[in-house]
Write a protein that binds this DNA or RNA. Sequence first.
DNA 1: CGTGCTTTTGAAAATCATCAAGTATAGTGG
DNA 2: CCACTATACTTGATGATTTTCAAAAGCACG
Lengths: 248, 248
Amino acid sequence: MFHTRPLVVEKSAIEPCSACAARPYSVCSAIDDKDLSRLAALAQIITPAAGRSFIEEGDPAEHFFNITGGTAKLFKLLPDGRRQITGFAGVGHFLGLAVSTTYAFGAEAIEPMRVCRFSRPRLRSLLEDFPALERRLLEVASNELVMAQEQMLLLGRKTARERVASFLIARADGQTPRPAYCTHVSRPSAVWLPMTRSDIADYLGLTIETVSRTFTRLRSERLIETPSPSEVVIRDHAGLERLATGME
Amino acid sequence: MFHTRPLVVEKSAIEPCSACAARPYSVCSAIDDKDLSRLAALAQIITPAAGRSFIEEGDPAEHFFNITGGTAKLFKLLPDGRRQITGFAGVGHFLGLAVSTTYAFGAEAIEPMRVCRFSRPRLRSLLEDFPALERRLLEVASNELVMAQEQMLLLGRKTARERVASFLIARADGQTPRPAYCTHVSRPSAVWLPMTRSDIADYLGLTIETVSRTFTRLRSERLIETPSPSEVVIRDHAGLERLATGME
DNA sequence: CGTGCTTTTGAAAATCATCAAGTATAGTGG
DNA sequence: CCACTATACTTGATGATTTTCAAAAGCACG
């Protein structure tokens, strides 16, 4: 939606990379302060509104993207409209790695976003000069690969309940990391879901209805509470985790 | 199976990298002839027999692997034995990229294999000296990521027929690349399947029975022929491809 | 206070899984 | 060379999870 309104593009010089809140989480952390100006010179900032697409699957891949605010959904489509969301990308996430000349997936903001955009050829030349950046990218790609494999296990072999449980656990762990020594403790934790049921369904390979019914069931089993559709409180983290890993 | 018999490990010096048949397909192509000796010094060759595991999910990740012969299946398991095969790795394939200290997946030979094995810390130091190798690895990882996303679409949103069709098309295209100008021509092409129906099922998120029935149906529809269980002839490549991409 | 959207809930239908049996195929040992 | 066994594959009947179809309830926004 809103495909016709042009994205707002500013010069990144207005707010330098050194002050970027996303820097510690992003690939840019691989670049020293003194070299940041070169990076900044390459960057444009775009601010897609919620619901706005900023990568179209199949389009020529002209840019890399670095998310500095908000969340996007990444997805692939079949000709008849079936959709698979391959991931949700938040602050610090890097997009557009594909070697191909076209994007292998689409991306759409689910919250208002701030995105740093780099032209591919220019970032390529930067990569030549900063091997550390390349190393960081390899690290990022490797991690994504591990997560992709985990998602394949979920999509291919887990039940609806296990999928929803896995999703909630991943969200909870991703948002509120805590020391290892207390992961076994059952305590409530709040999870914020910026995406719709439809997005969750397309991420988990289910339908909206099944996702909704599964939430209802987990609630009736006292594993979670749902103060609002976009807010979930995990009441029994350990139990939900056992469910997620297929242990019951 | 055969977990108790030790893997045969030889010094790679016996057959130098320069003569390696897999080199043009593998990451090693990023290293010049003159530097190959350094690479060779780090490599051990292992030759897992068919059915032999050579990576155990969860084990400390001490090595990288480069496949120079045969095929492996890569998989993840759930505690109750459910299995998701995340990919089949053939000649030139590089394994073990994960940043983590443990392997995120298991690997088992489905044909007799030849595998080049590198100790992680030692390859890391090699990476410092050869940025081209790192660039190549990033390329490989990016491609894998694209394939993983494609597989997520398959597992999350395609029907059993579409999954099997996609699998056969991918096998056919991967094995016998042909010029773009004749991709629309319907002509028979033979596909060799070294893996069992069980492997195919675990790769496509289906059961053995569904895979078998789907093959039978595609045969009755004259889209394929199956001279033997491990051999498929694609009679209508275009038709199968339309099926695979969800166009009918 | 409608209007439109998301979410929830219900009933029916369908795809795919499970259970079960039978048929090939390959390898083994007599 | 041929039974014999083990394994893989195929086919059939039944069943269950999930989807589809349908409608009502909850919420945000103008």
